[in-house]
């Protein structure tokens, strides 16, 4: 057992973990942040994606001890204090980009990173290619692609977020 401390969703936390504990296991089992899911054991589905130090990573393919001192952001941390959602979450809802919701947290975390790293713009092809690490079995991706395209201008301050 090792004690590690890190920042999760803006709060400093510490936890006792085994060396073999995965980051996703720590988040789910120790910190009860069950929004981050596990959909595979070969690092391919992206259900577990969170941000570590601003980069989207697969929390199932990182040891908790590797996150010592890191800043971790999970889907729960995207929701503002007043309960309002991140524009990407809003656009997923607006465009019906989720059905069973299982892939959704990872999909949203990946999508935010994708949009953030393309300030110059994003084509549909780039979005589809950029989602290579995330599987969804429900939606057929159509509406996910639409939601991400709609979130881009909002996140880059090109248009104000449409009031619902």
């Amino acid at each position: 057992m090792a004690q590690i401390s890190l920042t999760v969703n803006g709060k400093t936390v510490s936890a006792d973990v085994e060396s073999r504990t995965l980051l996703v296991e720590m988040l789910r089992d120790k910190l009860h942040l069950t929004g981050t899911h596990v959909g595979c054991d070969t690092s391919q589905c992206g259900a577990c994606v969170v941000q570590v130090n601003g980069m989207s990573v697969k929390a199932c393919t990182m040891l908790a001890v590797q996150a010592e001192g890191a800043k971790v952001l999970t889907i729960e941390g995207l929701v503002n204090e007043d309960g309002s959602l991140h524009p990407m979450q809003e656009m997923f809802r607006e465009h019906h980009a989720l059905q069973c919701g299982y892939c959704t947290p990872g999909m949203v975390m990946s999508a935010i990173d994708l949009v953030n790293s393309h300030p110059e713009g994003l084509t549909e092809e780039q979005i589809r290619h950029g989602l290579e690490g995330n599987l969804c079995r429900c939606t057929g991706y159509h509406n996910i692609v639409k939601a991400i395209a709609a979130a881009w201008p909002i996140m880059h301050n090109k248009v104000p977020m449409a009031a619902e």
Binding site: S43, G46, V49, M55, S56, V57, K58, T61, M62, S110, D113, L114, G130, E132, G133, N134
Partner: peptide, 9 residues
């Protein structure tokens, strides 16, 4: 190589 998440690490 791989996907965006794989490439970060």
């Amino acid at each position: 190589i791989g996907d965006r998440q794989v490439r970060y690490r």
